[in-house]
Nucleic acid binder design. Structure first.
Lengths: 240, 240
DNA sequence: CGCTCGGTTGACCGATCTCAAACTTAGTGG
DNA sequence: CCACTAAGTTTGAGATCGGTCAACCGAGCG
């Protein structure tokens, strides 16, 4: 059975059987990691490309004052930048959140895959564009949305991404993020995040509990968030 | 005399004479635009790649409530994403800030340049990685830095970028951004930004005046910002 | 069974926003 | 060359959002 990386790429561009086989063999060497394990740290020299096959992973940065900012979440199927190898050092760290299975693809292998297989190249580029769009959405959230809107917006994003890869069972889904981690993503205090979550719960929009999120009133949540699902979807060009 | 785009790419990867010639001809069709002119708007179908040759340009997003968030600044030599063409529509707009000269490179031309010229491909990938690093730094700023730190940090970033392309005359440089625009970049109110600028002026670190920034005490500014210039520099790998 | 980690709550404080007005500069037309 | 205007900047007063500090709670685990 094909892994989540292949499944994702197939959703982003048409993929020939040869290409699928090539991806199979490239990701064959997957490794398991425990939760909270740094795959690579800020300042390290970049190595191979990481591909998350199972579990959740995040990118983050720690500031001199000790605070942390989470920069992105990687879910099964997601990979980190294909060309990192060109940089002298990482400007951020990457860490598992849950126990995770991660494959690594060496730079030469990656180059080879991209040049030899146009479908793979195309899918990887689209994936990268989507990731960039997500970053822009985060900047927008942090800059111009009130805390409750920010929380709601992130939940919408994570829900849609989970659903896209078949990890959501309609009204709810597994969300293995502590409130501390969420606060570090949203640029707020855990205390304040907790109050916002309470407000969202009382408003009947959603309810976060031990590792899963229940979206009781999707429309209300979307409305609070000012969420435009377009930023994750329908962005693929119909015509090539 | 070569243009700012070529100059920038030459700084990011070794460039063969043929490659320079190819870039010359690709950017020959530059066009002039007045200030505040949208090059492309959110929702539009992406077209060619934009390359800024002269002037300042920004990416931005407007929210339903009417507020605006600036997502990035493009200075002479900067280009926007090479593969935008793969998306169905823009998730943000791009607008000139000052009068600007912008070249456009059609997708086929771009593909051709990249596949035929490894030096160009490499330089473009590095440029993209740097842009992504900048976005991550913005997210970090918005999430975890106090307003005065954010302002100082952005000024450091812009100063270094200007200096890199020869647009800074040591203690000062041309900064054609209104306070409103800066506020929209930093996720704050123009009123509050103005107060922060006053604080920075009184502290003797820097002074912003009509279109130029004077950095009176670089060390102090860097210290206030918690600026790590590594995120823009020294990231190129020595070894290929 | 007690410890530890994460979540929850309260009281208080301070940073940032809002609203509103004055002022400054650059550009425009008479 | 001088109103006049529009855009941008500056300042004040008061309100609000989100942060800080501190205590308590509850579940999982050795």
């Amino acid at each position: 059975m094909e892994n989540s990386f292949i499944a994702k790429l197939k959703g982003l561009a048409p993929m020939a059987p040869v290409e699928i086989a090539a991806l199979e063999s490239a990701t064959a060497s997957a490794q398991s990691f425990s939760a909270r394990h740094d795959l690579i740290r800020e300042g390290d020299r970049p190595g191979p490309v990481f591909v998350v096959l199972e579990g959740w992973v995040c990118r983050y940065k720690v500031l001199p004052n000790g605070t942390r900012q989470v920069l992105a979440y990687l879910m099964p199927g997601d990979a980190c930048d294909l060309h990192v190898g060109l940089l002298a050092e990482m400007d951020h760290s990457i860490q598992t959140i849950t126990p995770a299975v991660v494959a690594t693809i060496e730079r030469e292998m990656m180059d080879d895959l991209m040049t030899r297989h146009p479908g793979i190249a195309r899918a990887m580029y689209v994936a990268q564009l989507i990731d960039e769009g997500t970053m822009r959405a985060w900047i927008t959230s942090m800059g111009r949305r009130a805390s409750i809107e920010r929380v709601a917006h992130l939940m919408c994003e994570l829900y849609l991404r989970a659903r896209n890869i078949g990890l959501a069972s309609e009204p709810q889904f597994t969300l293995p993020l502590s409130q501390l981690m969420l606060a570090d993503s949203l640029g707020m205090t855990p205390v304040h995040l907790n109050r916002v979550l309470k407000e969202l719960r009382l408003s009947g929009a959603m309810k976060l509990e031990r590792g899963r999120l229940l979206i009781s009133d999707p429309n209300r949540l979307i409305q609070i968030a000012g969420f435009d699902e377009n930023y994750l979807h329908r962005r693929l060009r119909r015509a090539g």
